[in-house]
Simulated assay, not measured.
Amino acid sequence: MPTTIQKADILSKAGVAAPAFPGQQTPPRDPSATQEHAGDPARAEAVVQWEKEINELFVAYAASRAARSLREAEEAQQLSHLRHANSQLGQADIKSDGEVG
């Protein structure tokens, strides 16, 4: 499971608008850096809230990717069935044309 920082990075690269890390433009690269706010309760609460928002956005992002993947697989399967049915229909037309005579 990716860390919250990794999730924020994934969301950012995917173009999802995610909240900025409290007090910084970008989250720190080191996951332990999110724990360095123990002396400041307000900042600690802001980081906890940021982590919650990132996790919620990531769940929605992952669900939307899974749904899109499922739709694409279903569309590919349906297209395959249509192509197969069309080729069977085309072969039947060739056989019926050859029988006339």
Rank of each mutant, 00 (worst) to 15 (best):
A63L: 09
L89V: 02
Q25C: 01
Q78F: 03
H84W: 09
A38Q: 02
R71K: 14
Q91P: 06
T26A: 07
I94S: 09
P27E: 01
N86Q: 15
A38V: 00
S32N: 14
H81N: 14
Y61T: 01
H81T: 03
K52A: 13
D40R: 02
E56M: 04
R29F: 09
H37M: 00
G39D: 00
H84Q: 14
A85R: 15
E51Q: 15
H84K: 13
H84N: 13
N86G: 11
A73T: 06
R29M: 12
A33W: 05
P41A: 10
Q24P: 00
S64N: 13
S96I: 05
I54G: 02
Q24I: 01
E51V: 04
T26S: 12
R71N: 07
Q78M: 02
E53A: 13
L82Q: 15
V48N: 14
P28V: 06
Q25N: 15
E36N: 10
H81D: 07
Q25D: 15
A38D: 04
A33M: 09
E75V: 05
Q88C: 03
R71V: 04
T34R: 10
H84I: 05
Q78Y: 06
P22T: 00
G23C: 03
A73L: 07
S64G: 08
D40G: 01
P28G: 03
H81M: 13
S96R: 11
L57F: 02
Q25V: 10
S87W: 06
